[in-house]
Amino acid sequence: MADKTSAWQDFTKGLWKENPALVLLLGMCPTLAVTTSGFNGLGMGLASTAVLVGSNVIISLIAGFIPKKVRIPSYIVVIATLVTLVDMFMAAYSPELHEALGIFIPLIVVNCIILGRAEAFASRNGVWRSLLDGLGIGLGFTLTLFVLGSIREILGNGTLTLFQYKDHVLRWVIFYKEAINPILVFILAPGAFITLGFLLAAKNYIDQLRGADN
């Protein structure tokens, strides 16, 4: 059993103290690759959260029956199955959403946050706490991806997109490309590293300030 923490803490720790992207530095591949707009970050984050909650629940249920040496392959099979099922049902019952998020779904399998939480938390805790942990970590991930994507989109494209499907777009124009040239590099891969670096620094700076208060 992990140390005694309240259910509320199981949930909130993922948002800040154990934020997967900023503290654990897990799931860097989707973090860097898909956060080219606010909406992309949001979509990837929410899809990952759904899978994370599902895999945490299932793994906390079956962890007791699985011999230690084969736990990793077992977890991977569970996660891959879950992702494929989510993909299939989304394609069948919500083709619009599937088309908007479809490209992110297969990426979720290789997101190490999910395997990481299965290994570090769900296999050692009960169903309820694992569910809260999945939800917290997932939302923390979503939030970080959204902030990262928004900054990159604003600087690199001059817009902020909250939702986009075909002609239905919820997007603000922050500044006009004709008036100010956007910094294209922020949309490209190097921009992801630069922005993430600044976010990490900001997070650590805030932690330092709060630490100094105590």
């Binding site: 569970v78 494929t84 394609a91 069948a92 019952y93």
Partner: peptide
């Protein structure tokens, strides 16, 4: 045995999912 059971269950789940969604997709 454990791995076998898990993969069989996963396969069954995927087959079921595929059958349920094939026509809809």
């Amino acid at each position: 045995g454990t791995l076998l059971v898990i993969t069989i269950l996963a396969g069954a789940a995927l087959a079921g999912g595929n059958m349920a969604t094939r026509d809809k997709i």
